[in-house]
Amino acid sequence: MPVAELAFAPGIDAYEPSHRGEPILEVRNLAVAVDDGLAVENVDLSLEAGRTHCLVGESGCGKSLTCLALMGLLPPGARGVSGNLRMKGRSGAIPEKGPPEGLAMIYQDATASLDPLMTVGRQIVEALPADVPRRARRAEAEDLIAQVGIPHARARFESYPHELSGGMNQRIAIAIALAARPSVLLADEPTTALDVTVQARILDLMLEFQQSTGLAILFVTHDLGVVAQIAHDVSVMYCGEIVESGPVTDLFAAPRHPYSRGLVECLPRLSRQTERLESIAGIVPPLQARPTGCRFASRCTRADDLCSTQRPCLERRGNTGAVACFNPL
């Protein structure tokens, strides 16, 4: 499908970060078309050096697809992508074949994202920039293995993915992503399949790298706990759209969108034991059956007539965040 033919909702003036210099990566109006319609729509994101932006939402909301679209790695089912990408001052269309320079990604299932027939060392070497001389490549890869906290880097260079644990493979995946010397790292649920103790160490590791290199991270997750731990900014996605965006403290202290509030409330917490967990009634509508108005309307306790006929746009509220709701909290 030619990009120009994609239908768009009216353009919006979304949440602009009102602080700290130029964003390192800006996405405007990202849309991804699949067979049944637009799986991702109107997505605007902006990432800054040294900060983590979390993209939260439930399965099927389009958060992984957003990452893959930015990387130019859309799955075969995707029919087309449109939008603008501005990176380090250079702007252009969303890439269709492979990522732009400076962008790297960590994938959801680390073990599956490693070639089972190739040593992990060679897979890291492969990701090094082309200008690293041939003789220095192995040493550099071993360095990266050590940096991601794997002992005996020299021996581990020769290991195959099946010889390492899930946590180790996730570290290798991080080493591969870092090998490209990215300024922006996309991380798609990198710790979801891991044990909590391993998850904690992987998150610490990513944080360390961010602090030492000023990496901007877009972190995709469904776990609000992880968001609380690592995010500076958050965008909440529902049914392919961003419904709320802002600093993480605002999301937890005073969520504006009823869906965001639901997500925050239904997180089981260690510090309190309530009789019932809050939950959001109903289920996410499938792509073919998305309502015409607000997509959350059917599950929302605050919905009125306007919500079922008109689609709210993401608009700035106050001076920090943006929310797409006619009746925000």
Binding site: L68, M71, L73, P75, G98, P99, A104, M105, Y107, Q108, D109, A112, S113, L114, D115, P116, E126, A127, A173, I176, A180
Partner: peptide, 9 residues
């Protein structure tokens, strides 16, 4: 997934 990851390099 690993082919996608390779393309991502």
């Amino acid at each position: 997934p690993f082919v996608r990851a390779a393309r991502g390099k």
